[in-house]
């Protein structure tokens, strides 16, 4: 599924869709950035409650398909601007991380 498909199917709120044609090939949930860098994969939909600028650097280095801020987390303008600069898709939802992952898992099957 693409990022556009995810937004449509989930009802989650897009914050920035830099390239919503990106294919989502997997998912990863985590907030410890080095842990995410060690385990995350290219094309992942990354669920996190971490919302500082370093999230954008990690998303870019891993080349994830999108970042989904869960549990009602809203990144500030500096984070969104950095994402715009580096073409990172950002989405947010009030859903708990676990519930969001379960839903993605269902759609990916």
């Amino acid at each position: 599924m693409t990022v556009a498909d995810l937004v449509q199917q989930s009802g989650w709120s897009p914050i920035l869709l830099a390239d919503d044609t990106r294919e989502i090939t997997g998912g990863y949930a985590g907030d410890l950035l080095s842990w995410v860098m060690g385990r995350g994969q290219y094309g992942d939909c990354w669920f996190t409650i971490m919302s500082n600028l370093n999230v954008i650097a990690v998303a870019q280095l891993l080349d994830v398909a999108c970042v989904v801020f869960t549990e009602g987390v809203v990144p500030d303008a500096a984070v969104v601007n950095a994402a715009r600069l580096h073409d990172i898709n950002l989405i947010r939802t009030d859903e708990p991380t676990y519930a969001a992952c379960v839903r993605l898992g269902g759609w990916m099957q």
Partner: peptide
Amino acid sequence: LGFGAGMG
């Protein structure tokens, strides 16, 4: 900040 997990 999400670092210091001992994974560096």
